[in-house]
Amino acid sequence: MVDTKRVCCQPERGLVLRDVTLTAGSTCVLRDASLTVPLSGMTLLSGRNGAGKSTLLRAMLGLVPLQGGEILTHGLPPAQARQHIGYMPQSVTDAALLLPAVSHVRAAVDGLRWGLPLRLRPRREEADRLLALTGASAFAHRPLGLLSGGERQRVGLAQALAGNPDLLLLDEPLAALDHAGQEQTVRLLGDLTARLGIGIVLTSHETEALAGVVTRVMQLADGGLHVRV
């Protein structure tokens, strides 16, 4: 569930870039870019291969440093904003493939806490809820390594939803899926934005599969970010 109290109290919804310079290796992703864009609904972050889409997502989370300027998400700098953001990287996970999928989600549910849990049931129930939300309950107890690409994406989404985020950043969620898998994932993402009111920013080259679903497109090109609705 979305924490509405938290949402209401935040001053500035959306993504704000102020004179941002960001590089990835020798590629200049953004050069003195300034922009304010809402992040409600589904936002497609597009750009050619190597343009720096993943780097920009990671910069929003504070995982890569900016060379200048600042990024605010929902009015907060990355270190604070990431408490309200769920993230699914491009390769969902290739660690511990023999562990059941549900263990991966349980680890994400209380992975920010120190010490031993006093009660295990709340964590189990929350993990089950997230897996149900992403349609992954049926294969939750199978080893992650035996799941298909689409099934793993659902487990990854359940992980990203841990902590009840307001915003999901999804890096290429449609990559390596066949046409049917892409359709299912797009339907699921649309369902999440509609039911939970969560904003989604995703990178993808599959613009056809997303047609009619995305609220806006942010195009990363020539050191700038261009928005079209």
Binding site: M88, A107, A108, A160
Partner: peptide
């Protein structure tokens, strides 16, 4: 456990 199973996601959440 979180950092071992999903290192990138864990870092993104502030671990």
């Amino acid at each position: 456990l979180f950092a071992s199973l999903a290192p990138e996601v864990a870092r993104a959440r502030g671990v």
